[in-house]
Design a protein around this nucleic acid. Structure first.
Lengths: 200, 200, 200, 200
DNA sequence: GATGAATGAGATTTCATTCAT
DNA sequence: TATGAATGAAATCTCATTCAT
């Protein structure tokens, strides 16, 4: 059996299960979790309504499984092994570009994760996962501070919150049609955020 | 205290109406728009269910009235007359502090506005108001660019999106309990964002 | 105190009471009893909602009072003293014309009485009144049979049901816009109904 | 037995759908459309409340479907092919008898159709159907006039309105318990109505 | 007496979930 | 295992009636 990216919950992959998760993502991204009825998802996944309940205990469970899967997906996309000698600035640029690429290639995933209406559905595991992901990012920032790359007059959590908030808001503004990001906009924003992180 | 903007919709204030809006804000901030039934709001406002429908045509209309009122409130809070000779850096610091104060004093308002699950309820007026508010902020940024205060190698929309996104995410992280912002955190974050805006 | 036409229930006349009954008639004729809310009637009568409940115990009581008043009105309109020597054919023509005139002059009264959606509201008194009115008409037919004017191979009730049904349906068809009744249509219909009643 | 007209709306028959329509007819005939709540119908049909909404978009849609079905049913019952050589008087007698039979066999259908409180619910299709049915009857009368069977000093619409009004009122009076129709009453009424139609 | 804002029981409708096939 | 028709609890909304002013 091939090694498989660990999905958050130990859940057997299967074509139907995958189809359901994809359909749910598509519909949730369009209309929000509350705006989508379970039979809608079934129709989009081309399975029977009851089949969804064979793979997920409830709509809530489906939302959580999807949340955890997408959270894992974006994390997998963003995470890179950093070798000791790598140029930190190039690493930051790389991270920035990956995130932009992810949002461009997976707009539905991005929308679903940033749409906040799944929040009342999230269970302990999902919330724990979210916390873990945040902590991992904070830890990375702290390392960069210790290496003298990031300025240390600002707590790592604060740096992270600023950069992540900026990044997410740029993408949301673009998806909402408020702005359109050119290559140079993206680079300019990236450099501006670098000024947030990096010392004088 | 900042000048208060005129309440968005031309609706006669009345104690019951006010109580309903307050109750709705409290409940929506807690559980999301979709997680709150109209009788819940009525109970919290200590009015009959039917009374809500005397003041608002529907739950949707209530959400829109609340959205517009809170949007106007935060705008009123943030907006200041800028005299030509004012120090731009002090103005930025002032803006930053006002926003932090607003979030501290009106956590429910902030949560409601940033909770995205009202989006499917928003009508043309609400969306237009949101756009107007954004445009006003962009215009302010453009002026600062023209005055040579903000760097001009980054479009004003981009600057705005970064700073606003950062600000909102800091507050959300605090409200979610992920971080706790001290005075110096707030000042540090403010200065970091100033580095986003201001030239070299 | 002036002599006053006996309203079915012993109810004190008063300007407000009259205004309420008129408003109710107007609105019921437009939208049906079920399609009209009590505050609508109050608005049309230019009185407070509560005032209606000073004059009538309930919406049901109002419907009954109106039913009885209008039933009495149409009866008063149709009833004539018949002197022994009067020409029976002229009497019939007269009755026919009165009914047509009534429907023309009081379209709302006619519509309300023929609209059937008040039926579930009617109380014992209203139903008794309706029965009494019918019996009076049957009795008149019987007298005409005894006088040899109406044919006696058909029970008086049957004759009445036919003529009244025809008359009402003609007026309803006109009010619904299905037909438009000219003078000669009315006379032709009258003569056709005379053929129902009169012998050989 | 008369040829049955195609069910008005192109809706797939199904046991549940049929049960719902039957239950609705029974309850509406008893208490009027406004006097019956949807769960009442569901209980009578022995289905869940939600099931009604699987088959009909709304209570209004259910009323219209029922109206159209019953209108089609009575039309199918009344309509016969007339061969050129048929005796017109026998045809009239036959029509009369069919209508009486229908009312006897389908008292609820008759009551529902004559109860006017469905009127505010009727949609364009239902009103168009009603008009079509009326026009068909008028046309039949006109043909009889052209054949010299019906007198031509009275417009066909007027003849129809009289005869139909008489017929309906007889049945209503019987259903209301005001009169009881014997065989000879029915024949006498029929012959009286023939005198309305037929010449000289 | 007159008012009309307030009420809450009850109506219509939705949708997450079940279960017979 | 897969299905989707059926369900009924719960949501939104209406309106006859009350009662403090």
């Amino acid at each position: 059996m091939p090694a498989r990216a660990q999905t958050a919950a130990a859940a057997p992959a299967s074509p139907k299960r995958t189809a359901i998760l994809e359909a749910a993502l598509a519909r949730f991204a369009e209309s929000g979790v509350n705006g989508v009825a379970v039979p809608d998802i079934a129709a989009r996944a081309e399975v029977g309504t009851g089949t969804i309940y064979r793979y997920f205990d409830s709509k809530e469970a489906l939302v959580n499984a999807l949340f955890q899967a997408e959270k894992a997906r974006i994390e997998g996309y963003l995470t890179t092994e950093v070798a000791p000698g790598d140029d930190p600035r190039a690493g930051f640029n790389n991270f920035w570009q990956r995130m932009m690429d992810f949002a461009l290639e997976n707009p539905r995933s991005f929308r679903f994760l940033e749409l906040q209406d799944h929040r009342p559905y999230l269970d302990k595991d999902s919330l724990a996962l979210e916390k873990k992901v945040l902590q991992r990012r904070v830890k990375a920032s702290q390392q960069l501070q210790q290496q003298g790359v990031f300025r240390d007059d600002l707590r790592a959590e604060i740096i992270m919150a600023i950069v992540w908030g900026a990044l997410v808001n740029l993408i949301k503004a673009q998806q909402a049609g408020y702005i359109s990001l050119s290559e140079s906009d993206i680079e300019g924003a990236r450099d501006a955020c670098w000024r947030v992180c990096a010392g004088h």
